[in-house]
Design a protein around this nucleic acid. Structure first.
Lengths: 152, 152
DNA sequence: ACCTCCTCGTTCGAATTTGAACCAACTGTA
DNA sequence: TACAGTTGGTTCAAATTCGAACGAGGAGGT
């Protein structure tokens, strides 16, 4: 095995910044959603994706990809959300294996009352601390990263 | 309560990119470290921080901040690492409450044999998919985010 | 109809994470 | 010294995560 191409100072800084910012922001968001709405970040993400979909319905397998989680992880969270009445399940019309998660009215209301506080936090810690150019550069770079990772 | 300042399309895209890229990369890294070295990402991070510190030793409280985890989370992971002999504990000389985590020789060897594969993955998915300007922009932006979050 | 292969979602056990509660030990002040 | 308040680390229960295994169902070829 050949000597690996180590990271230089800038590359190391990039990786550190990526991991550190990710962890810090995640912790903050998690905590905020938990105490303000009793939701975990994955749960909130599920509600968001459902509300953005036509009819407030998304197939489980597709939903798992949208929120970037494992199949079993999604099953668990949807079950939790179903228990508290924010989401319901129904079987797919065209495929008996399929399960479709549906946002309930209560779920939509929950999202509406939770979103402002969440958006506020996202602004405070990510959006408003950067100018437009920085924001665009960040989006572009992370977009490249995601696309490469999605396609492999 | 006043109407919140919602995110416009660019801001939404930035937030989505941030969350998505973070999740995708984390999953990948976690999986890679797990199957190649039997380590979780937090565990690997702990080894890295220890090896970078003078004497390969860091106080628990400081280490928790470095790897961005909870106190109890760090206790757990250090215990795991201690069980497999990669890290040892000793009490602090100047403060009997304090505990210092030390990288063992086995820990250093483990890190040396694990690092190449890890760096390879980081390159493949984050570093090498961006050019220098993008990398710098990314680091700058995320640096701002982290600093703001550290100081509050 | 009948195989074979693949997909879908759930279930299971094991590992991990978190905050709260706790105890020990340090700090400053009287 | 005595006391109150703070800090450091561990322990605990509860929630969450993942991959592997599973069963039901669909798709394509014969």
């Amino acid at each position: 095995m050949t000597e690996p191409r180590w990271l230089d100072a800038e590359e190391m800084a990039a990786w550190n910044a990526f991991v550190e910012a990710g962890n810090l922001v995640n912790r903050r968001v998690e905590q905020q959603l938990r105490e303000q709405a009793g939701l975990s970040h994955p749960q909130y993400e599920i509600l968001v994706r459902l509300s953005a979909a036509p009819g407030g319905e998304v197939r489980m397998s597709e939903l798992a990809q949208l929120v970037v989680t494992s199949k079993s992880g999604l099953t668990y969270q949807v079950t939790q959300l179903e228990k508290v009445g924010l989401v319901s399940r129904r079987t797919c019309d065209t495929d008996d294996r399929g399960v479709i998660a549906c946002l309930t009215d209560a779920g939509r209301r929950k999202l509406e009352e939770t979103a402002p506080g969440h958006v506020e936090l996202v602004r405070e810690h990510l959006i408003d601390v950067l100018d437009r150019d920085q924001l665009r550069a960040l989006t572009d770079a992370l977009g490249v990263v995601s696309r490469k990772l999605r396609g492999s």
